[in-house]
Design a binder for these strands. Sequence first.
DNA 1: AGTTGTCTGGGACAGTTGACCCACTTGGGA
DNA 2: TCCCAAGTGGGTCAACTGTCCCAGACAACT
Lengths: 202, 202
Amino acid sequence: MPRIPPVERRATLVQAALRVIAAHGVSAATTRAIVAEARMSLASFHYAFRSRDEMMRELIAYVVGGEATAAFAALRPGNDIRSSVRDALQAFLDYVISDPWHEQVMQELVQYALRTPGLETMAREQYESYRQAATELLVEGAAAAGVVWVIPVDDIARLIVTYTDGVTLAWLADRDFAAASRVLDFAADSISALAQIRESVK
Amino acid sequence: MPRIPPVERRATLVQAALRVIAAHGVSAATTRAIVAEARMSLASFHYAFRSRDEMMRELIAYVVGGEATAAFAALRPGNDIRSSVRDALQAFLDYVISDPWHEQVMQELVQYALRTPGLETMAREQYESYRQAATELLVEGAAAAGVVWVIPVDDIARLIVTYTDGVTLAWLADRDFAAASRVLDFAADSISALAQIRESVK
DNA sequence: AGTTGTCTGGGACAGTTGACCCACTTGGGA
DNA sequence: TCCCAAGTGGGTCAACTGTCCCAGACAACT
């Protein structure tokens, strides 16, 4: 094995752990399973991390810090706000469907964080990062469509996240794409009704 | 220990297991932890169940069959449909807040079912029972308010479940009651807009 | 009272887990 | 080229897991 700087080694292990979790769940993410996935020896694990616990903490921090919002990436606002919202929601659903395990891992990690003493705040931060991503979409979308939101954009972002979460869970359980699409149609209709044409440019 | 019929004994163990899961998560529900909670000996467990796996299957069946929809219970429709919907959603949120672990256990069990070969359909059934409960509320509410739904009631039930799930997850993570209430206000507004005054009685 | 089948307590088993340790290898600076 | 600290392989440990077994206790029926 080549010499690898500790930071990079930790990242390698974290990503291997994520693959193991995606394939078999949080409880299957044992030190042995992780090092096997990363093609390292067991000793390397405890050389890079003081304990499995420390690794899980770093894993969740990694997820909270951007990895989680992958589903919101690469969206270009359209002309009217209704399509912008609808397209964004569709993009999210498409992402979930293209890689169902990823979102399931996110859900499981939230549960894990809520359960683990000292990690409860991580769950909150994960949701904040979701809402942050949604907020950016809403602001850009409104600007492109020449509208303003009539209620605080934070509240609308929370609506978006409520929908993405709810639809994700339901789709993971029943895989009913058509039903999920109908929900998102309704979401786009009702949310875009919160936009108003910008009256004047000062 | 008194003589107890096997069926009752199985139920006792299942409920003990649910308490253990609520307190420490699915992974902590070991045979020993469960029998300790139920004040039985380890042998009794494997006398009542062939294996831990069989117990988990029965546990999930128990949850799917009614226990899960406890949060929808005891709701009396009001006069106007908007309040009916809003009150139902509020009742759900109140329930979650009064016993946060219960809903978290439901979430964890869905994840567990999705992960466990042979139990994937259980997750779907759990969602169907949620939707069923929501459907009943919608039908009763509409009847009491003298309105009809302009889109299929199944689709509206799905909207309700999407909201309850999304709001539950967010509240579990950030415990922001005010924000959750604002989401539910919006939900009640937009969903009740799908009701129309019943035109004529034939 | 005796017998039979149901149930229980305690112990044991093999496998897995996180953590640790120590003798080795190896790469890069001197 | 030599050296030494960073990094590794393999083994070990105690704790814990699901499962099994068996001797005995108990209730119910004869």
